[in-house]
Simulated assay, not measured.
Amino acid sequence: MTEQLSPMPEDWQRALAVVAHPDDLEYGAAAAIAAWTDAGKEVSYLLATRGEAGIDGIHPSKAAPLREREQIASAAVVGVTTVEFLDYRDGVIEYGLPVRRNIAAAIRRHRPELVITLNHRDTFHGGFWNTPDHKAVGRATLDAATDAGNRWIFPELVDQGLEPWNGVRWVAVAASPQPTHAVDATPGYERAVRSLLEHRAYIEGLTDEDPETYVRSFLDETLSANAPRFGGRLAVTFELFPR
């Protein structure tokens, strides 16, 4: 028998989503975020890059501000108004102390109970190889959730007025090949579609297919994949790490 997915915890108020690129959250997780903001929860976004290397036909100098605008508009569709960028170079993020420090600093600023990130494992479901940026940022986010609560790790953050925050209760990894929990995607589905459609320049660089047809096809396949493990409902899945 296939193990069933547990519902995500709901007893929290603030979340911080930390991912590598514009659109990372829109390929599924946005449906959960829409449901959470509808329930009055606060969700903020932190992006490591501006996704400037993501569109082959647009030079990075022009792609960066374009993708930033698309991400801010996309976040607004699901009720997120705080979107920050760390300005790492797209495609070449390296796991290490600098990225851990910057994410820990953001966690101390925002003081979330739930931290969300994207798959840090080598592969996605089906064996598709993950990207270096996703792996580096995902792993650094898991580590930074602990770093944020220890005043003796990155003590310079205290000097900057960022006191330790040990209130992160969970890190939820979206698109993990080893999901443990899920959120019903049905209430947020249409907003998830509109949110991903805001990344129009990126989508048009990916496919000649009609953007809405592409978006609905992708989300339908992604969100229905684990429905048998979640009572037949469309599911945004997460691998949940308690702290």
Score class of each variant (00 low, 15 high):
14 R>G: 07
14 R>L: 10
14 R>F: 03
16 L>C: 03
16 L>Q: 06
17 A>H: 08
17 A>E: 01
18 V>K: 07
19 V>M: 12
19 V>K: 05
22 P>G: 04
24 D>H: 10
25 L>N: 00
25 L>C: 08
25 L>F: 08
26 E>H: 13
26 E>D: 15
27 Y>Q: 13
27 Y>P: 00
27 Y>N: 12
28 G>D: 00
28 G>M: 02
28 G>T: 05
29 A>M: 08
30 A>W: 09
31 A>N: 12
32 A>S: 14
32 A>I: 13
32 A>Y: 05
33 I>C: 05
33 I>R: 10
35 A>F: 05
36 W>Q: 08
38 D>L: 09
38 D>A: 15
39 A>T: 06
39 A>Y: 05
39 A>G: 11
40 G>V: 11
40 G>N: 12
40 G>W: 11
40 G>F: 06
40 G>R: 10
41 K>E: 03
41 K>F: 01
42 E>P: 00
42 E>F: 00
43 V>W: 04
43 V>K: 09
43 V>L: 09
43 V>C: 05
45 Y>M: 14
45 Y>W: 15
45 Y>F: 15
45 Y>A: 10
45 Y>D: 07
46 L>N: 04
46 L>P: 07
47 L>V: 06
47 L>N: 05
47 L>R: 01
48 A>M: 10
49 T>S: 13
49 T>F: 14
50 R>G: 14
51 G>S: 04
52 E>S: 13
52 E>M: 09
53 A>W: 11
53 A>Y: 11
53 A>N: 15
53 A>K: 15
54 G>I: 01
54 G>A: 02
55 I>G: 08
55 I>Q: 10
55 I>C: 13
56 D>E: 13
56 D>R: 14
58 I>N: 10
59 H>Y: 00
59 H>Q: 11
59 H>N: 13
60 P>L: 01
60 P>N: 04
60 P>G: 04
60 P>A: 04
61 S>W: 13
61 S>N: 11
63 A>D: 08
63 A>Q: 08
64 A>E: 02
65 P>T: 00
65 P>V: 02
65 P>Y: 06
66 L>N: 05
66 L>V: 02
67 R>Y: 01
67 R>E: 03
67 R>D: 02
68 E>R: 14
69 R>D: 12
70 E>S: 09
70 E>I: 01
71 Q>M: 14
71 Q>G: 07
73 A>Y: 07
74 S>F: 06
74 S>I: 03
75 A>T: 03
75 A>D: 02
76 A>G: 12
77 V>E: 03
